[in-house]
Nucleic acid binder design. Sequence first.
RNA 1: GUGAUUGUAGCUCAGCCGGUUAGAGCGCUAGAUUGUGGAUCUAGAGGUCGUGGGUUCGAGCCCCAUCUUUCACCCCA
Length: 450
Amino acid sequence: MKPSIPKGTRDFSPAEMLKRNFIFDTIRAVYQRYGYEQIETPAMENLSTLEGKYGEEGDKLLFRILNSGDPFEKYRQAHLEIKNSDVTEKGLRYDLTVPFARYVVMHQNEISFPFKRYQIQPVWRADRPQKGRYREFYQCDADVIGSTSLLNELELIRIIEDVFDTLKIDVLIKLNNRKILSGIAEVIGEADKIIDITVAIDKLDKIGLEKVNKELKSKGLSETAVQKLQPIILLKGSNENKLESLKNVLKDSAIGKKGIEEIETIFNLLQSLKRTARNLELDITLARGLNYYTGAIIEVKPNDERSSFTSSICGGGRYDDLTGIFGLPNVSGVGISFGADRIYDVLEEVQGFPDFSGVSTKILFVNFGEEEAKYCLQLVERIREDGINAELFPDAAKMKKQMGYADAKKIPFVALIGTEEMKNGEITVKNMSTGEQSKVTMEILLHMIK
RNA sequence: GUGAUUGUAGCUCAGCCGGUUAGAGCGCUAGAUUGUGGAUCUAGAGGUCGUGGGUUCGAGCCCCAUCUUUCACCCCA
């Protein structure tokens, strides 16, 4: 049979794993520097945990796992109609936030709040694959749960800056607040249509004002409401200018004013760190994940001409009551998630990966035969004791084969030890990039390849 | 879920109007070179033309279905 893998999934070869680990290691190091602790949760969750948390669309994109055995058998025999819930009760996780909420509720007695956790694991969505969209991809989440302080929002923004600074990706961080969106819906007299409004204006960049207005009307917004909305969604200028305008627009909305206050607090905190925040933009058309965000909404996009990515590579926000549905009310959380696979694609486009040659094996010992190999084994052990990656070729293959192996694997040094070297206690070492070759002692060799 | 698009050697791709035994470059293996990789030369291996049907005297090429690739919509990391 011809081997294949499921649609939207990928294999990762050694060269790709070096790059992927560069991303994971960077994010992990930053998370740890800010005091976040790692957890993992199972690949599969009970469907009761997942269903209804991601909206109608999300439910369709859940991978459901068929119960083991032949779950259809008894229904078939009795000629009964079969419902999904009869044959599947588990599903692959769709994101890391909902499983985390479940984790917090189940482990609430072991956790001392506020709990700062990070989690780097794959998630699965039965989406049609396309640019930057896979059916299996890694999310790198950090959340703070059990604290309403806006210092957490500030910290997450600083984490985003640190990660992309380290990865050397220019980004634009967009910030909004769900309370501002609620305020806007309120002042235009369409408070109950907030989801329709936010979904529509979120597309402003993409489809333009005209189509946004058309969508708004098709969702049942009145002409006057749409007209009232125009100056608000077209707000331009600096963050300060936008905030001043919004204060005026939302002066009669308590919730709207609260949202403005939160945004201002975050900006002020950033300024107190003497950060210019030039890559931080207040964007009131930013809606995202409306299903559980209640306060801050964060989205990060690449800001580099060489990248064709217009979709987000990191997103997040505050959700006031995510654990409520699992029976633990009044616990607020705020978090972000880096999309590792999209960051990978961006780094490829901007050629931002460092050179990984020589990060693996530093020296290969050529195998000339049983006796020589046995002798080399001790030397390889000695080199590894110093923490240097070294290997002995397992077969007494032809020199051409062994040298070719070193070449293909970009191993910078090759040691050749035959009967002559064994007798004299020497090591013939060849520098594979210059072609130079010399006879040295172990001490000198260690110095050379360190 | 909707609309396009792709599939020929390990990889990148040719393949004429439907016509005999499907080609190239790179890679791979072996040799030139029995203790020396990359460069060169020589030889060799490697194909169910994604899969299953159909049309035809004849299909890599046309038709249908299906899987897959890529892209857009919806939605999203």
